[in-house]
Amino acid sequence: MIRPRLVAAVASREVRTLLRNRALLAVAAAFAAVVLGLGGASMGSPGGYVSLTYDLLLPVELLVPVLAFAIAYQSIRGDDERGTLSILRTYSVSRLEYVLGVFVGRAVPAFVLVVAVLGAAGVVAGLGAPPTSSFLATHSAGDTPLIYGRFVLFAGWYVLATVAFVLAASALARTDREALAAGVGVVVIVAFLADLALVALLTTGFVGDLIGVLVGLAPASAFRGLVLELAIRPAIAADPGVATGHPLVSALGLAGWTVAALATAAVAVWRPVER
């Protein structure tokens, strides 16, 4: 049984840790500057929110894992290295409660940051747009802030999944150096290698029509598939006719990776001892 009181206690400590870490605040500010800069570049663009989503998709896909790495790689490993994990274990907090507390305390602020910054970028991009935008001629009436909101929420979901990944790496690492290497490895795998594996599969010719399903199995491509299928496709007038992802598989993939990563962290954080 998970006791919410203990999860909340651990989460509260994590949130305060984030808010008091100047280096992390600088990383958050840099993320905001890049995203808002791209939003500013799209200010008044006739491409509307679809254009903005396209502009932000790749940077978000790459920057979110980096942000997750900065926020979470030292979390569990840091408690272990300082000796405070041994202290925590003498309280009645379980492995799952501890990991969930760390996750909530690290991932929720990251979610809020990503959603707020992307939301602000949408506002910035919308400033100065002509009242009768020419994009209405090329896009269907689906190009609304609501559709852009889907992209923002998918990005928030993506950061939850990547933070879970980095937490698992932090729990599996036994030294600071391992934690650093594992954290960087997670970023590289999530942002690059999983996609490269998909491309490699495509070149074999065995994948065929399954590509829409397969992209849902890697975190970054699952996020991309959700954005392309549910945030961009409804907003454009001419359906490209080619599936870029299977939304259900992508959603299950992103959720599955999150749960699997948290379960891994909970198993790895410490060995249970019979009382």
């Binding site: 305060r16 840790t17 008091r20 408690d79 300082r82 000796g83 405070t84 041994s86 202290i87």
Partner: peptide
């Protein structure tokens, strides 16, 4: 339990 040379979370 108090480990040898514990360091509590800075800040």
């Amino acid at each position: 339990y108090l480990p040898q040379s514990p360091r509590f979370r800075p800040g």
